[in-house]
Computed example of a mutant assay.
Amino acid sequence: MKQNFTVRQGALDGVEAFLSVARHRSFRKAAADLGVTPSAISQTVRVLEERVGAALFVRTTRSVGLTEAGERFLSHAKPAFEQLVAASEAARGLGQRPTGLLRLSVPRAIVPIILEPLLASFCEAYPEIEVEIATSKELIDLAAEGFDAGIRLGQFVDADMVAVPLTPPFRLVVVGSPAYFARRSRPRHTDDLRQHACLRWRQSSGALALWSFNDHGHAIEIAVSGPLIASDFPTMLGAAKQGMGLAQLPEVMAAEGLKTGKLVHVLEAYAPMVPGVFLYYPGRRQMTPKLRAFIDHVKSHTPGRGKTRAQDDAMRAGARKKR
């Protein structure tokens, strides 16, 4: 026979009234304590006794005492009720001020670019918040895995998520090292990539990512080949610096290598624009103070904050492309 684990409606009704009467040894004082009439307290306790199946109080015109059943009920009900009150206060605290554990699902490549520069200042500003960062390339179910939010490139954020821009849109650039180009001529057109060693990225779906380009306003994708397949951008970046081949990367990741001369930019005229990096979470109604504090802090410490028209257009294009 299937058991019924449903909590009975009204199972806790009358417990607070009982505890107040037991504490004051008076229906009148308990009523004043709870802000109700003595008759209401009396009726509530009577219903509780009927539900329990035993008298809990001995009533006289001069005093109120506990029966043996009442003493036994009190010994169990008082600590349990106090724990319920404490649980409510703890939950209320999480709902009213920035506190608790903030869990974020983030690609490894994003950590040094966006999170490292602001984590110390955020933790200093909000000492009651603990930040846990789980690095993964997988697009996980935030709610099922217990995460408050995730951070991803805009084209990988589902359309039903609330998305907050953390960076402006940026380009995908093709780069290689000077050592590589000492052995190979630089590509002038996307068709030239067939003669080059290209470092490829395997997506979380298992598919090899195509290289995307903007050819005079037309979006094109090209299947490339080469000696290395990686599951994250930092590995591809490192391999490109070592001269293993060409890599297509977010410009923000390649910026330092381009500035120091460790990388060379090619096919610049074909570089496509992508939406940028977004923080996302399931719904506005689930916004907690700790998450709101983090979003506000990131915005105030990230250049180019604020959603632009270009980001709106890029996000919509990315969502259509995924569908």
Rank of each mutant, 00 (worst) to 15 (best):
G14A: 09
E16D: 14
A40W: 13
L12P: 03
G10V: 01
S39V: 15
H24G: 10
A32N: 10
G14C: 07
E16P: 03
G10Q: 04
S20R: 02
R8H: 13
F18K: 08
V7W: 09
F18L: 02
G10D: 06
A40F: 14
G10W: 04
H24N: 10
S26M: 09
A30M: 06
A11Y: 01
A22K: 00
R25W: 07
L19P: 00
S39K: 15
L19T: 00
S20N: 04
V21I: 11
R23E: 11
S20A: 13
K29R: 15
A30T: 02
R28N: 14
A31D: 09
L19Q: 02
S26Y: 09
A17R: 01
A17F: 05
G35R: 04
R8F: 10
A32C: 05
A11C: 10
H24K: 12
Q9N: 15
A30L: 04
S39N: 15
G35K: 03
G35F: 08
F27K: 00
L19N: 01
D13F: 02
P38R: 07
G14V: 05
R23V: 06
S20Q: 06
S39W: 15
D33T: 03
V36T: 12
A30N: 02
S20T: 01
R8C: 03
R28W: 05
V21P: 11
A17C: 11
A32P: 00
V15N: 04
V36C: 12
A40T: 13
G35W: 04
V36P: 10
S20P: 01
T37P: 11
F27Q: 03
A11H: 01
A32T: 05
D13W: 01
F18G: 05
E16F: 09
A32E: 11
A31V: 07
V21L: 06
A40I: 13
R25P: 14
A22G: 00
A30E: 02
D13A: 08
R28G: 12
V36R: 12
A17N: 08
R23K: 09
S20K: 02
S39L: 14
F27L: 01
S20W: 00
H24A: 10
A22Q: 00
